[in-house]
Amino acid sequence: MRASLKKALLSMASTALMLGAGVAEADTSDKKIALSNNYAGNSWRQSMLKSWDTVTKQAVADGIVAEATPFTTSENQVTEQAAQIQNLILQGYDAIVLNAASPDALNGAVKEACDAGIVVVSFDGIVTEPCAWRIAVDFAKMGEVQLDYLNEKMPQGGNLLEIRGLAGVFVDDEIHKGIEAGVKKYPQFKVVGSVHGDWTQTVAQKAVAGILPSLPEVAAVVTQGGDGYGAAQAFKAAGRPTPLIIMGNRQDELAWWKEQKDANGYETMSVSIAPGVATLAFWVAQQILDGKDVPKDMIVPFLRIDQGNLEENLANTESGSVANVEYALEDANKVIEAAR
């Protein structure tokens, strides 16, 4: 009883301070943040959930927030995630950190959350609803840097095989656009084949194996992550020379690359987003709840691995996982400042 009275007095005092000075920080120790995640079925998402767990458990233990519970829908379904958001509104969360199944189709639910006074921070899979915050990945850039690298590596050009992600998902479309732009920039490269690998090694392997017999010599494979190892296996099984395959930071891909590097000096690069971006979104949400003025659109840097830092990254990546970075409050502030 006495404690709660004290807390009430304190919060009154802090409100008064805030009104007075306009700079004092509001307390977020009684705030509840939920993670609404649309998919958990691949290594990237598993790493993401693990990072979320590590960082938010510490934050809860430190009394920074009261609660940070993750929620996941089973199969990347818009309808389920929309219903999930409705339920989180009802559950009384102060902020929802969101990796969305669709950039548009969740807008109805997101708007409803905003109207209920809930802070919505979307990341990775962002939403277009204006009332939400967005921590976006420049996916098109992720496609383009692959061509930049290839241009450097093989200025003479050559045939490319493109492995795309899940059809109809905007991430796939964005990376594809970046690759298209890159090919336009360096016309010595030509995409001779394109398959959908669904960001899954087994699917990619099957798809590449299916198209390989119809292809001329392939100089390089441009990818979206989670498909490089499968592609390498398909080339090997078909008895064709291994082209330069761009990797996507998955452990199996990095391990394969290391093996090839040690055996025959194989060179490539690897690029993807660190799953820990969820923790960045967590800190951004905490800062917004704290009363900080945060711009609605932020950009998160992607994680690139090159020949030089391969070993270091591989050593830090668990088997079946993805190269990762967990973010701290200072990183969030840097991203916020950069967006101003």
């Binding site: 199969e75 818009v78 309808t79 199944a101 669709s102 548009d104 189709a105 109809g168 998902v169």
Partner: peptide
């Protein structure tokens, strides 16, 4: 009724249905 709720369509919107 679904797009009335979501306010925007998507080809994969109802795979689960």
């Amino acid at each position: 009724s679904l797009i009335g709720l979501t306010t925007s369509p998507d080809a994969h919107i109802a795979d689960r249905y």
